[in-house]
Amino acid sequence: MAERQYDWGAIARNPKFVELHRKKTVFLFGWWIFSTVYYFLLPIGAAYTPGLFRIKIIGAINFGYIFALSQFFVSWALAIYYAHVANKDFDRLTRELVEELK
């Protein structure tokens, strides 16, 4: 199983890799922070703004319920959005980089 030797430092300086790295970092950490903040709004809001959570929106369904339910949909939407961006951008850049190194 002879593994090919790569010059890792050179790859790391390759403009394609730098672009991939920059795009990924901004996207991944940015959305991670967004989702984390959005999630912690739930326990914090429930504890400190119960009046808001109590407001009835449709029938007996209140804001709190809709907000908690929205957590699921926001997580799913983010997952699909990430898959879309990763399949389109990140995977393409990676493929191009790997091609270049052949």
Partner: peptide, 20 residues
């Protein structure tokens, strides 16, 4: 309601798994 709110974190946890 609290039971429902409790369940949310178990899913949101996967955002970290997915992204990072």
């Amino acid at each position: 309601y609290d039971g429902f709110m409790y369940s949310v974190g178990w899913l949101v946890a996967y955002i970290t798994v997915l992204l990072i």
